[in-house]
C-alpha cells in the first residue's frame, strides 16, 4: 500500500471517529438519576446545613444526586402537570421542594418518604415578607 493511500485511509478514519464522537456528544443522554449513586441525608439536616453554611452545603450537595428522607407535607401539580412533593424540615414554611420526573399518584401528606434527585440549592425566599427559601431537588424519583 502506498504512503498516499495510507494517509488517505488514516484521514478518513479520523473523520469517521470525529463524526461518531460529535454524534455521541450531541445525543448524549441526561444523567440517569434513578440509577445514580446518591449522597444520603434527611430533610431536617439538609435544610439546616444550607441555612448554617450555604457555601459548604453548595460544595457538598448542589448539582449532586442526593437521596433525602423525611415526612411529606404537601403534594401538588405544577403548571406542567409534574408532581411536586414538599418534605417538611424543622422550620415552618421551609421545605425540601422535590419535582418528580415520574408520575406518582400514591404519595400522601404525613407519609415517610425517600426521594432521590439532583439538588439545585436553596431558593432565596423573601426575608421582608417572611417567605423562606426551599431547598430544590429536580428530576426526582421515589426510592422504594
Amino acid at each position: 500500500m502506498g504512503t498516499a493511500k495510507k494517509i488517505m485511509i488514516t484521514f478518513c478514519l479520523l473523520i469517521l471517529i470525529g463524526v461518531a464522537a460529535a454524534f455521541y456528544l450531541w445525543n448524549k443522554p441526561h444523567q440517569n438519576v434513578a440509577n445514580a449513586a446518591a449522597v444520603k441525608t434527611n430533610a431536617v439536616s439538609l435544610y439546616k446545613v444550607f441555612k448554617s453554611d450555604s457555601i459548604a452545603a453548595n460544595k457538598k450537595f448542589t448539582q449532586q444526586v442526593i437521596e433525602v428522607s423525611g415526612t411529606v407535607n404537601r403534594v401538588s401539580k405544577n403548571q406542567q402537570n409534574q408532581t411536586v412533593v414538599l418534605i417538611s424540615t424543622n422550620t415552618n414554611g421551609a421545605y425540601i421542594n422535590c419535582t418528580l420526573e415520574q408520575d406518582s399518584k400514591n404519595i400522601q401528606p404525613g407519609q415517610l418518604i425517600n426521594i432521590k434527585g439532583i439538588c439545585n440549592g436553596i431558593g432565596q425566599g423573601d426575608a421582608d415578607l417572611g417567605i423562606k427559601g426551599d431547598v430544590y431537588l429536580v428530576r426526582c424519583y421515589l426510592d422504594q
Partner: peptide, 16 residues
C-alpha cells in the same frame, strides 16, 4: 411583582 429562579433549574431535551 417579583420572580427569582436558578439558571441551573432550566431543563433541556438534550444534555449537551
Amino acid at each position: 411583582l417579583q420572580f427569582s429562579l436558578f439558571i441551573k433549574g432550566f431543563h433541556f431535551k438534550k444534555a449537551l
